[in-house]
Design a protein around this nucleic acid. Structure first.
Lengths: 203, 203
DNA sequence: CCACGATTATGACAGTTGTCATATTCCAGT
DNA sequence: ACTGGAATATGACAACTGTCATAATCGTGG
């Protein structure tokens, strides 16, 4: 199977964004890092850097949500949570705590562009909307899994938000501490919270 | 009381970092935003941008930890949590969901500097250490408050990590969604978790 | 008043950034 | 074989970045 230049650029951009943030990821870095032709940037991404980052966000979103949904279906809520945490732990350890979440990077780091204020602002909100959509997607997967196991609707929504938000925050904190201790602690507490919440409905 | 040029620069840098991230915050932006003399940068911060960002991180850390510790002492764990969440909600709403946490920005966004690889790497780790220290500070405040109300040591540590991490993640998510809904949901669940954990020790 | 250090002003430096225009190469369809 | 569009190569553009050197200014102790 052949990975197209376009896909390599998107994946490389997502990787660099997860390591250094949006603004520290230049298009020249992307082509250097992925060994792709620089001249193809404006061909594959006519709207420039913003388009590349936008596609990297949705790419990274699916890369997480697809295995997450599968784990939730196959192993239930607790198993899905464990798979979710394990994938982030793997990412942290495999990169020496260099890479985090590229979607969080878009939410935190503002892409400074070329356009004139108005375009800049709307393009910025478009990127934020994409990041928000990814987070909403992950939350939705968690929420339906909780619903399926009998939890009430509002409680499921709140717990899904808590899980996604706390793990996003924990991954960033683990990068700062170069340790997975915080992830271990959060995982244990989240498992406890979800278990007791589910046990309450069953009893 | 007079605010010195140096302090204005530090506060302005923290503000800009919380809005756009580290790399999108240029020193020229800082002097523009704070109406401070540009020529004073290298005088007050001889080590350049990195030093300014470092001081902004510890400044922002204290700006949160001091009122947080006071609230914990005066109003207990639940009251302190509410004050913590309320301060972030205020920050989000007062800025139209533009400003988040500058410490998280340092953990996510890597400062691209001038030095030659080795210096760059160590300087980067220094910034990460500072951010890690701030997070550890906040966690410690939460942890001792939980300990004081009778919770076990390991549980206090885990819950403190969960609180700080989930709120950091939630604030970033709220910026993406331009809504405090996620913060409301997380606050409610965190209050439930802490209340039941504390009630368990009392009963 | 004067001098001296702290502070600020101004401009320059090399390097990088995103973007674009142009030229060249590639390759399937007829 | 040829053609037409897709893909890539190459170089240039202005704008911006962090940093630094130098000069001007300020404020205060002598």
């Amino acid at each position: 199977m052949t990975t197209t230049t376009r896909d390599k650029m998107i994946a490389g951009a997502a990787d660099l964004m997860s390591r250094r943030g949006v603004n520290a990821t230049s298009m020249r870095d992307v082509v250097r890092h992925t060994a792709t032709p620089r001249g193809s940037i404006s061909h594959h991404f006519p709207d420039g850097k913003r388009q590349l980052i936008a596609e990297a966000v949705t790419f990274a979103g699916k890369q997480v949500s697809i295995p997450l949904e599968k784990a939730m279906n196959e192993r239930g809520v607790i198993g899905g949570l464990r798979a979710f945490v394990a994938s982030w732990r793997r990412q942290l350890e495999a990169t020496g705590f260099e890479a985090g979440c590229p979607v969080l990077a878009v939410a935190v780091d503002r892409c400074v562009g070329e356009a004139s204020d108005r375009d800049d602002e709307t393009a910025q909100q478009h990127l934020l909307d994409l990041a928000d959509g990814v987070f909403a997607d992950w939350r939705q997967i968690m929420r339906t899994a909780l619903l399926r196991e009998g939890l009430a609707a509002e409680r499921s929504e709140r717990l899904a938000t808590l899980v996604v938000a706390s793990i996003e925050g924990t991954v960033a904190m683990c990068r700062a501490s170069r340790s997975t201790d915080a992830l271990d602690q959060v995982q244990e507490e989240l498992e406890t919270v979800l278990s007791t919440a589910l046990a309450r409905t069953a009893g």
